[in-house]
Write a protein that binds this DNA or RNA. Sequence first.
DNA 1: GTTAGCACTCAAAACTGGTGAGTGCTAATA
DNA 2: TATTAGCACTCACCAGTTTTGAGTGCTAAC
Lengths: 349, 349
Amino acid sequence: MALNDRKIQILQAIINDYIETAEPVGSRTIAKKYNLGISSATIRNEMSDLEEMGLILQPHASSGRIPSDMGYRLYVDHLMQQKELSLDEQKYLQGVISRDINQIDYLMEETAKALSLLTNYATFISEPVGQRTRIKQIRLLPLDSTSLLLVIATGDNFIKNHVIKMDSVPSEEKIFYMGICLNRVLQGFALNEIDGAVISKMQAELQEYQELLEPILKAIEITMRAAEKVQVHMSGARNMLAFPEFSDIQKAKSLFQTLEEKDVLVTMLEESKGNDIQILIGSENTVQGMKDCSVITATYKMGDNTRGTIGIVGPTRMDYSQVISVLNGMVQNIEGVLRNLSDGNNKNT
Amino acid sequence: MALNDRKIQILQAIINDYIETAEPVGSRTIAKKYNLGISSATIRNEMSDLEEMGLILQPHASSGRIPSDMGYRLYVDHLMQQKELSLDEQKYLQGVISRDINQIDYLMEETAKALSLLTNYATFISEPVGQRTRIKQIRLLPLDSTSLLLVIATGDNFIKNHVIKMDSVPSEEKIFYMGICLNRVLQGFALNEIDGAVISKMQAELQEYQELLEPILKAIEITMRAAEKVQVHMSGARNMLAFPEFSDIQKAKSLFQTLEEKDVLVTMLEESKGNDIQILIGSENTVQGMKDCSVITATYKMGDNTRGTIGIVGPTRMDYSQVISVLNGMVQNIEGVLRNLSDGNNKNT
DNA sequence: GTTAGCACTCAAAACTGGTGAGTGCTAATA
DNA sequence: TATTAGCACTCACCAGTTTTGAGTGCTAAC
């Protein structure tokens, strides 16, 4: 059975209508609303074919049809046309980032909020991550008479701190010197590369402060492990409650459970990293609890190999083309802000 | 009309039953279940009085009674008896924190998760904050040929970083020296105290690096503003969906909206800071969107004046005494972990 | 190949009466 | 005088029935 033009028109009509109304679409509706020049009976015959091909399905015997995941896939891959952002939306996008945001985590927070407001779906976003496993700079600073601060910058200029408590802290100069030594030895290393050889080297360099070495090494391990953990921000989960798909409390609850699991979200974002735009429809999602949703992800870049990912979660009948264009717009914007932030917003103003 | 013993017994019965079942409680139920030695008719008369006093109310003409906010208030203030933690719960509490958590934000995250699991309500928690507006130590570190790292430690050992971009970064020694100067001048100051006098002093000290002063000052401002913003972690919002009170999607949505607003949560926690345990019942909440809920907050301390707050949100018929005992237990635990974390978990092991 | 027409299906809405948990009131009782 | 038994009444809820309407598939005619 061939997927001729007319079948495609009908499929498109069904998808458009269902995205809009969330109600199964019947042949008469299509005949009346989209004047394809054929009668409802003919549409019925075609729909019967489309169902046989697995592109649409019937929730129950005497109801209209809804698109299947496979139907959406066909739509997304071949039928959908890119939507342009409305002026309002463009303006809003600009507005959200025009404020001088200069801390990455606020930028993430604001972006997630804006996207969930703009799309009415749920949004999650991971911060830009590059060479985060590798030590770029490592230093020590005195805080007070019993605490020392360990500062580690990773390859992607991500900074992580750790306060080390001890009985008494050496003088400022000694600490400075220790930090320099530490840095000389460990610069460029990843945590799993710090083996016996490296440690002996450190012992040699820091001979005077043997007793401090152990707590410092432990602090480095803790800090690097923490640095490797990627932060993810989530917003707009409540939007999902507005969709009839989730008026069943049980379904809503299990979706919310998934959305609260940051580890799961990170994994999802990791998996799609690299693709400019990735779309996973319903059952295509590997994560349980997302099988009733579609997830669209977009990757943004910040120089080099430093990247982050944005994900939008909606019902399978989400407005794919709108989400994609908003995401594209937002990626542009974030990249702009990050560029501005990383090469000197301090110079102007 | 006096609130005699019998009335109190009846009120208590109504509250207990309603907390358990979420169904309006009738006179016959009370007569059968709680043998107070009086007939349902007598109970009806007493209930009529209790209603007149505003302690209970009737959802509709021929239904049983439910406690009013005022009724809960009386219960919480005078009738409720402290519940002991079950062994399982005590064990769980221990287990949650026995893992070696050494980053404050993970501790917050884990605590919120544990509490929402343990109580089946929603939990939010603010990190320990003390002298966060005051600079305790300030330093500069070189990151690479075009970026400088500003590190600020505030009075409560909270660390905040900021990467400053510039055309070229001076030598390590010069930066070290600049950092020391900066520290000498600014130590002990709050952002709003850095006035003309202080700035001229800095200009004098850093004469050689006039052109760096402006970006550094700007970075200090940004960083201190960010430091002042208190982080809050939220968990278990989905639990609220399990309660019949929120089976109305609209109500659920507006509650979720409030729970997603971190600023609102911070305000709520701030307002209750200082009180060991604070209970706000239904309409007593100033925050719109929480008027159908009760919020119990507890303050935990970390030496000096450094404090954080935990909040538990549930329906007004929440299990107050259980939540209070769990909160008390958790405060003990957190304080333990923080104490351990701040006076040298690095020494042992 | 297309369409009009018709019998059929089935979910959802509207209506029905019955049930039961609750009330308030009153009169009898201790 | 406080308590209680008894009774009429209310009203949400449930189960069953009917009605409605949007939908289908099939068939015969164009």
